[in-house]
């Protein structure tokens, strides 16, 4: 079974993110780039599918500037068989629909039985690409999955999505798109052997032109990025615990009217 995993390279969660000189982009100096954590769950799940079935291929796909290859190489080091890089710096600031069109075109070329990706990338936080890819391909899709099992015959998958207050288990025909929620699995570290082996694996490079997709002209335009206004300074309520608590409850009710 061929499984495609869509991954995005994003700034590390612990990185300080600042607005760049162009207010429509962040300042990229000093940023540590990582594979978006939810996408790592997707990679891990794809590897487990291959291991469980004893056969198959895991292909990691991403788009963006040259440095995106680092993210793809981490996927290869984790165990993906090969990677596809849609090399175009414009993809970095693209809206989700543009990204989804590019990725859908790659998927059409690759014709996998299953597409996995994270529930959202932790930079733009839109969480739309997986579902949009499914829509563009006319495939079913299940978002925020917490578990997954492919039927032995490889024709369907049973997956559980997290909804408010419940887990809903569905049978879906393949091919389909699943987006991974935390809790699906615990991603492995790439082993040293995996890292050393990654450089021998193929990263196929494509241009948007090869895919017939126009990456200019987003449907959603970024006007500007802004730093969040800082919260007004708070106050520490002093005193013995008993008095402090009494005062806290009073201000919550009388000043803040929060309860």
């Amino acid at each position: 079974m061929k499984v495609l995993v869509l991954v995005k390279q994003v700034p590390d969660t612990a990185t300080q993110v600042k607005v760049g000189s162009d207010p429509r982009a962040i300042a990229t100096t000093g940023i540590t780039w990582i594979v978006s954590p939810y996408d790592e769950f997707a990679v891990e799940e794809a590897l487990r599918i291959r291991e469980k079935r004893g056969t198959g291929e895991v292909v990691a796909v991403s788009g963006g500037p040259e440095r995106v290859k680092e993210a793809l190489r981490s996927c290869l080091a984790m165990g993906a068989d090969r990677a596809v890089h849609v090399l175009d710096p414009a993809l970095e600031g693209a809206d989700t629909l543009t990204t989804a069109r590019v990725l859908a075109a790659v998927i059409q070329q690759e014709a996998p039985q299953l597409v996995l990706t994270g529930r959202q990338a932790i930079d733009d936080d839109t969480g739309a690409v997986g579902a949009q890819v499914a829509e563009l391909l006319g495939w079913p899709c299940l978002s925020w999955i917490m578990e997954e099992a492919i039927a032995e015959d490889g024709a369907t998958v049973r997956a559980g999505r997290q909804v408010e207050g419940a887990l809903e288990l569905f049978d879906l025909p393949l091919p389909c798109v699943l987006t991974a929620q935390k809790g699906l699995n615990e991603p492995r570290y790439p082993t040293l052997k995996g890292i050393m082996g990654a450089k021998k694996k193929e990263i196929k490079e494509l241009g948007p032109g090869d895919l017939g997709v126009n990456v200019d002209g987003p449907q959603l335009e970024l006007v500007r990025l802004e730093a969040l206004p800082p919260r007004p300074p708070g106050r520490i309520i002093p005193g013995e615990p008993k008095e402090a608590v009494r005062e806290l409850v009073r201000v919550l009710r009388e000043e803040a009217k929060a309860i």
Binding site: R73, A77, Y189, I195, M196
Partner: peptide, 15 residues
């Protein structure tokens, strides 16, 4: 090199 950086990342994350 890329590999050395990835090995450092691996060791860092594990550690």
């Amino acid at each position: 090199t890329d590999e050395q950086q990835m090995i450092r990342e691996l060791a860092r994350e594990f550690a």
